[in-house]
Nucleic acid binder design. Structure first.
Lengths: 139, 139
DNA sequence: GATTGATGCTTGACCAGTCAATCATTTCAT
DNA sequence: ATGAAATGATTGACTGGTCAAGCATCAATC
């Protein structure tokens, strides 16, 4: 492969990401949440006991600790999540998924899956497998 | 391919983008510019006469018109770009690349290329070709 | 050639996030 | 047991954008 095409490839991936963000934001807005909020709900949904420390949540969704603080405040006000103190450590504040939050997540996840499916439709199944393998190798 | 893996693939691409952004921002900061600023310099560098209308620049770098206005103000103050009135249309304000801007771009572009090359190093040449083909098909 | 609508750009208000500082609490070495 | 360092969370100041409104100019129709 000519050396010069790696920059082009990098730019393509960035452009691809813009397209993904636009589509996801558009569909998730019907559920009243942003993509980042979807990620939070998803992580809580997957977590044992539907509960996580804020630091761990930050790491999983790719935000800083303060970013999580700022993101969660409105989510708590709208009842998607709740705070809970940790038994063993008074510093940590656990984040829990409310049942309302779980409902919203399940609805939003349908949209997310639809976007994902239609997004990759131009690729053959084998290409999709290759793409998954390559992205895993690159992360 | 099992239907369920498209969501996973989408999440991988998002994670990949985070990694790209981190690496690019880190290297470009040595040249005193952000990735978005790099994109602006790149577009001007590629444009005929090193000059573009703000609307066209906005579209090429994926920003809104106001985003471009806000981005370019500091870039003009630091002398990377310059304004110029269009001869035929008093509404448009052309953006031009200064020679200082061209110098910074060339330096930054070396870093950009290095990041791109090291980023895709885990992939064989054939994989890189496939990846380029797939991303082009998806955009 | 005046009106109406489209286009290019900027501005004010806002949103989502970072970073650095701070505070509270916990852990660890002695 | 105590003092020092580490950890978890929040806050203030800031960055980098968006969106909607507004202003100037241009184009088209009548």
């Amino acid at each position: 492969m000519p050396v010069s095409s790696q920059p082009a490839l990098l730019l393509k991936l960035v452009a691809l990401h813009s397209k993904i963000q636009r589509q996801l934001a558009g569909q998730l807005s019907f559920h009243g949440i942003s993509f980042t909020e979807y990620l939070v709900l998803r992580q809580l949904h997957e977590a044992p006991g539907n509960k996580l420390r804020r630091v761990d949540l930050a790491q999983r969704v790719g935000l800083t600790a303060s970013g999580v603080t700022r993101l969660l405040n409105p989510m708590q006000k709208t009842g998607l999540i709740d705070k809970e103190d940790a038994a063993r450590d008074a510093r940590v504040s656990l984040v829990t998924l409310t049942s309302a939050g779980a409902t919203i997540f399940k609805d939003a996840d349908v949209s997310f899956t639809e976007v994902a499916q239609s997004f990759f439709e131009p690729l053959a199944a084998e290409d999709q497998r290759d793409l998954l393998r390559m992205t895993s190798a690159l992360i």
